[in-house]
Design a binder for these strands. Structure first.
Lengths: 192, 192
DNA sequence: AACGAAACCTACCGCGTTACAGGTAACGGG
DNA sequence: CCCGTTACCTGTAACGCGGTAGGTTTCGTT
């Protein structure tokens, strides 16, 4: 079974890479990208820093892999979303603080000059705004009950999600992220 | 004039410190706090890194000064605010991307472990939420037109401001921060 | 059994970082 | 005029960082 065994090797390698990406997610959550050292990531998977560089030749390559992982994460086709599912998404996120912290930290860093994730986030937010506008349109048509268009509402929707995440990460006891987001959704659904 | 001259010296020193803080704001905007080196800040005010340490003994002391500066910035008593002034504030912010970038970057970093600005932001957001709730209460009473209480609306208000800032910093051409924020305020003012 | 590639490791380089030590020149107060 | 403080500077310690070079072991294929 030449192909079968070759696959096994490849699969093992791919598993190792995934393991490393997972560790990187953790370390970035704790220290940000700039503060995350390859050595710290390597240690978490039982490798030396140089051993890690065998899988990802540079630190930036590792970051790219992390961002790709995220893309696959929410690869749910936007057309299948509905407004009421957004509340569930936020609730789900509230149970996984690690992931939120990773990408909140990355988002914050990404606005600085020459940050390797900047282009990624710029493009991503453009897409997310489009997705959200589409979701709102299928839910409400060309005008929300409050009179706004989906295109003008989408940035607000995205902003609320992100902004709430920061407040929640800083002080989980003082901010009920899910409840607050549902309040916002209610705001959108009401008539003017 | 013993006191007068003593004052002069002190004033000069204070001016220098302010100059350094200003430079630090710039560098943090460009590289974040972790990425901002004392040498880079020092160079911007024509000092060596060691010369800068004469004014701020540690990097963290400089950060504290930066955060204090911000506190004095918006020391406008919360009771004097009104909802319609918030729109002006956002508009004003849109003209000063540097400051926004500084504190957006710091906010993002602050959610990581052991970040020296974490406690500051946690406390600050608690206060800002309180302020905003008070502003909303004076504007609308115990219930907004849409039925929410000021306390439940305040986190949303803050979240929108922050979230829009990130989207705007990443892609100023695609996001009209002021207009979007006015849309949100309109959402609050409408009756259910 | 032999070979070639993959999966690591050790050793090391060069740089950037914060911070400390100690010196020196300017300057204002007595 | 002297003297202490302020405002710097040079030198350097100590460390962590990303990345390179090159070796060695493991392992699947032939």
């Amino acid at each position: 079974m030449p192909y079968g065994d070759a696959m096994n090797a490849r699969v093992r390698s791919e598993e190792r890479r995934a393991e490393i990406v997972r560790a990187a997610l953790e370390v970035i959550a704790e220290r940000g990208y700039r503060g995350a050292s390859l050595a710290a990531v390597a240690e978490r998977v039982g490798l030396t820093q140089q051993g890690l560089l065998h899988y990802f030749p540079t630190k930036e390559a590792l970051l790219v892999a992390v961002l790709k992982e995220r893309d696959q994460w929410d690869a749910v086709p936007a057309t299948q979303w509905r407004v009421d599912l957004l509340a569930s998404l936020v609730e789900y996120n509230a149970m996984r603080p690690g992931i939120i912290q990773t990408f909140s930290a990355l988002l914050g860093e990404s606005v600085t000059e020459g940050h390797p994730a900047r282009a990624y986030f710029t493009e991503r937010y453009r897409q997310v705004r489009e997705s959200m506008a589409a979701v709102l349109r299928t839910a409400y048509g060309d005008r929300l009950p409050n009179g706004l268009t989906p295109e003008r509402t989408a940035p607000l929707l995205v902003a609320v999600m992100d902004g709430l995440q920061y407040q929640w990460l800083l002080d989980p006891d003082s901010v009920d992220m899910s409840a607050a987001f549902r309040d916002f959704l209610a705001l959108l659904g009401e008539e003017a």
